[in-house]
């Protein structure tokens, strides 16, 4: 994915501009730099997942889209903060560009989904947990895994991987149903 890893330059460019915008705006509405960074990165992730999903049609400038997402995320954050926070009254234009509710919702659901997966992985125990993590999260090859985890060959490691997956599946679906 070009925006993700292949083309770091594009990502840097988009991000730096986006960050500047959001920083200014969030500063005005009572947030700090940390908030801005959070919101910025989260909105980039929304964009990334959306692009990956394939149903992304740019109906406006990329920056506009990103900013709308960031703004919405920030509002949600403000709303979830404890009472005593001063409500803002002057953002009637919030709806003009749309606030991409669906995208944000999908994003939150996805985050939850992945968080559950992480939980399941943690419950899985070793060496399964590490094995799966290095294969799926770090893109290690089967051969690499075999040497790292002390299997005689790649095929053995593969068999082990499938066993681990089967166990993970059990844990994962059990926690989801509660």
């Amino acid at each position: 994915m070009k925006l993700a890893a292949g083309d770091r330059k594009v990502m840097e460019l988009v991000y730096s501009q986006h960050y500047r915008f959001v920083c200014k705006w969030i500063g005005k509405t009572g947030g700090n730099e940390e908030d801005a960074a959070d919101v910025c990165q989260e909105s980039m992730i929304v964009l990334y997942e959306k692009a990956k999903n394939g149903d992304f049609e740019l109906t406006c400038k990329l920056s506009t889209y990103l900013f709308a997402i960031a703004r919405n995320l920030w509002h949600k954050k403000l709303q979830s903060r404890p009472k005593g926070f001063v409500a803002m009254e002057d953002d009637e234009d919030l709806n003009i560009e749309g606030n991409y509710e669906d995208d944000i919702k999908a994003h939150h659901e996805r985050e939850l989904h992945y968080a559950q997966l992480d939980k399941a992985l943690a419950q899985l125990g070793e060496p399964c947990s590490s094995l799966l993590k290095s294969f799926y999260f770090k893109n290690s090859s089967m051969q690499q895994l075999a040497t790292d985890f002390g299997y005689t060959n790649a095929d053995n490691a593969k068999t082990q991987k499938y066993k681990c997956l089967a166990r993970l599946k059990k844990i994962f679906y059990n926690t989801q149903v509660k």
């Binding site: 890893a5 992730i45 992945y114 799926y136 770090k138 893109n139």
Partner: peptide, 21 residues
């Protein structure tokens, strides 16, 4: 499998974002 792959890509992207930040 999809969840694992998706989650992996998601994590890598997050990491990349942090570095860019």
């Amino acid at each position: 499998l999809n969840a694992m792959k998706g989650s992996g890509e998601h994590k890598q992207y997050k990491q990349a974002l942090k570095e860019v930040h």
